[in-house]
Structure formats: C-alpha cells, structure tokens
C-alpha cells in the first residue's frame, strides 16, 4: 500500500490524535510521533503505530502523528483512517484490521 495523496484523520482534542499522511517519491516509510505523554508512553505509542502500519502493508509514505493522550484503540483507528484515505482505499478487509 502506498500513500498517493495527502490525508488527515483525527483531531487535536484531548484523548484523540491527529494523523497526517503525505506521499513520498520512493518506497520508504517515515514516521514522526509527537505526544503529550511521550515521556511515559512514547515507546508503547510507537509500537502501536508501527504494528498498525505493518498490518496495512504500507510501503511508501510519511506519517506524522500528534497525540493528545489517546488510547491504543483510538491510535489504531486514526492511523488506519489516515492511511486508507491517503491510499484511496475504499474496500476494506476487516479481518486484517483488528
């Protein structure tokens, strides 16, 4: 899966996160994470984000995340929403999104 257009998902409200995805000219995935709880949960957030990207099979695109203390389930949902929007995917295989 490749990001083919800029896309956003989420908000900057408390307990949410904003995910922005941007196309890259080559097959490379860049991930930037900023979080209000980076000190306590930074590694866990990174693990959730990377696992979500791997599950989707993302091979090209930049993913910038601004986290406002979201739960893991919200992180998964927002990252998936942004990637699927940026890759212009309409038909989902729900069994691969759990």
């Amino acid at each position: 899966m490749k990001i083919i257009k800029e896309a956003l998902a989420g908000t900057l409200e408390s307990s949410d996160l904003l995910v922005k995805v941007t196309p890259l000219p080559e097959d490379r995935v860049d991930v930037v994470i900023q979080s209000e709880v980076m000190h306590q949960f930074g590694e866990q957030i990174r693990q959730v984000v990377l696992a979500t990207l791997q599950q989707l099979g993302l091979i090209s695109g930049q993913v910038v995340i601004e986290d406002k203390g979201a739960l893991d389930c919200a992180i998964r949902a927002r990252v998936q929403a942004a990637i699927l929007r940026g890759a212009a995917v309409d038909q989902l295989d729900w069994s691969k999104l759990s």
């Binding site: 998902a9 989420g10 739960l71 389930c73 919200a74 998964r76 949902a77 927002r78 998936q80 929403a81 699927l84 929007r85 729900w94 999104l97 759990s98």
Partner: peptide, 14 residues
C-alpha cells in the same frame, strides 16, 4: 463516516 466506523470497530474490542 469512515473514521467513525474504524473508531467504533476498535473501541468495541477494547
């Protein structure tokens, strides 16, 4: 609609 569906999908499994 798409983002809400994903949020609810994951919240239900929380």
């Amino acid at each position: 609609k798409d983002a809400a569906r994903l949020l609810v999908f994951h919240a239900l499994q929380n």
